[in-house]
């Protein structure tokens, strides 16, 4: 693990991604503690205060400090996206592995159904799920997990099928290894790497999707300082206080960039033989 991080820090993307994510982790851990103001500290005299010494990123329509809200909001945005992605990956991995393992007709039926489910755009599926379960952060996370599962199932299956075809798996069968050994010791270690890469990149999508749901009013609910919600809140005041949109927008973008960079870095590190 330490070795992996060291190798990662040596690739330009990995180093940049790690740096961004470390900052984010710090924001999630200490955000409320280091925030200059309380996230819901209302100051009517300081409404729409532009960015400056008093409010680094400006203040919103209620005079709340944007930076403080961002720092607090990190806690709701990033871990939720992370958890949703992991849940989606896990669900997808189980379905994909099962499909690859069953093979034949079952594989075809499962994969055709997955393809069919993927015909519903991810955002729409998430919208439908969130609408059914009710608004809220937790439900948005479930919706994102549901939207990610089919894609991850596809990827896991194809990676597993490639691993299945390797001769070392053939050799294991030929010496009479049990199924569990073959799956867990021979195949799984070789399947994990590409899935880790894909999952990392998907966290970026999850951050964006979660923010989008909040933006559409279906994710986190006011007065939470979720980043997507902050953008939605700021829209009526676009004219007076553009910083109210720019700051959370940049935070979302930075987070997504961080996970994208980390994913690319991991891809390089985990496949040392791929020179490209």
């Amino acid at each position: 693990m330490i070795e992996l991080l060291r190798q990662l820090a040596r690739t330009p993307q990995g180093a940049a991604g790690l740096l961004i994510l470390l900052l984010l982790a710090a924001a999630c851990a200490f955000g409320p503690a280091i925030a200059p103001y309380g996230p819901e500290h209302i100051d009517f005299l300081g409404r729409f205060h532009p960015p400056g010494a008093r409010h680094w990123f400006g203040a919103d329509q209620l005079g709340r400090d944007v930076l403080s809200r961002l720092l607090t909001g990190a806690r709701s945005t990033v871990p939720t996206a992370l958890a949703a992605t992991l849940a989606g990956t896990l669900l997808g991995a189980v379905i994909g592995t099962a499909s690859a393992y069953l093979g034949g007709r079952w594989d075809e039926i499962i994969m055709r159904t997955i393809d069919a489910v993927m015909a519903i755009p991810g955002l729409l599926l998430a919208l439908l799920v969130v609408n059914t379960l009710g608004k809220g952060e937790m439900n948005a996370a479930i919706a994102i997990a549901a939207a990610f599962a089919p894609g991850m199932a596809r990827i896991t299956r194809s990676v597993a099928l490639v691993a299945r075809r390797q001769d070392y798996v053939g050799a294991a069968i030929a010496r009479g290894e049990r199924g569990t050994w073959i799956v867990f010791r021979e195949m799984l270690p070789n399947v994990v790497a590409p899935i880790v890469v894909e999952t990392t990149i998907r966290v970026a999508f999850a951050v964006m999707l979660f923010a989008t749901l909040s933006f559409l009013g279906l994710g986190a609910q006011p007065p939470a300082s979720d980043w997507g919600l902050m953008v939605a809140d700021a829209r009526p005041f676009l004219h007076q206080a553009p910083w109210m949109i720019v700051a959370p927008g940049a935070a979302i973008a930075l987070t997504a960039i961080g996970f994208n960079l980390l994913g690319d870095g991991l891809r390089d590190v985990l496949n040392p033989r791929d020179e490209r």
Binding site: D167, A171, A174, R175, G176, E186, P189, N190
Partner: peptide, 24 residues
């Protein structure tokens, strides 16, 4: 029906050295 007794008597070596050993 190929049990351990059979497996221990009949073994195989494959063509491609790169894919016949688990890289991890």
């Amino acid at each position: 029906q190929m049990d351990r007794a059979y497996r221990s008597q009949v073994q195989i070596v494959f063509q491609h050295p790169d894919s016949s050993l688990n890289p991890r």
